[in-house]
């Protein structure tokens, strides 16, 4: 199976590879995996007070399509609000990267990772606010 040029580009020069401080209150971490193929993906966001995603980082151990999907997802959500990012659809990633049907699950994984990072961030915020209220 041939990878599209865009997948190869992201695979060879992935954007936003790295780690954000998990303990930071403004950082949300999503960790997802695909037991069907043995991929594991961590995606993190740092959100400012206005709810805008300032930074996004990922680390993916998986195939080229999984790496490209997470690279693209982090690039897209930077500068967007949390709610805008939550609306990201895997089909947009799959279309941009021209993923073949057998690799669609890689884009699903990236979407799941974004959503679970946002959920983690929101959960932290709720807990923090509850604590502040006492």
């Amino acid at each position: 199976m041939a990878y599209s040029d865009k997948v190869i580009e992201h695979y060879e020069n992935p954007l936003n590879v790295g780690t954000l401080d998990k303990a930071d209150d403004n950082v949300g971490t999503g960790l997802v995996g695909a037991p069907a193929c043995g991929d594991v993906m961590r995606l993190q966001i740092r959100v400012d007070d206005a709810g805008v995603i300032q930074d996004a980082k990922f680390k993916t151990f998986g195939c080229g399509s999984a790496i490209a999907s997470s690279s693209l997802a982090t690039e897209w959500i930077k500068g967007r609000t949390v709610d805008e990012a939550a609306a990201l659809q895997n089909s947009e990633i799959a279309a941009e990267l021209s993923l073949p049907p057998v690799k669609i699950h890689c884009s699903v994984l990236a979407e799941d990772a974004v959503k679970s990072a946002i959920e983690d961030y929101k959960q932290k915020k709720v807990t923090r606010e509850a604590l502040a209220k006492g």
């Binding site: 995996g33 037991p35 594991v40 680390k59």
Partner: peptide
Amino acid sequence: ANPETQKADPSFLMEMMTQRE
């Protein structure tokens, strides 16, 4: 062999991520 609904256990994933790193 591959139910689509299957999700990996979070603590297992965490461990694999740590080991891979």
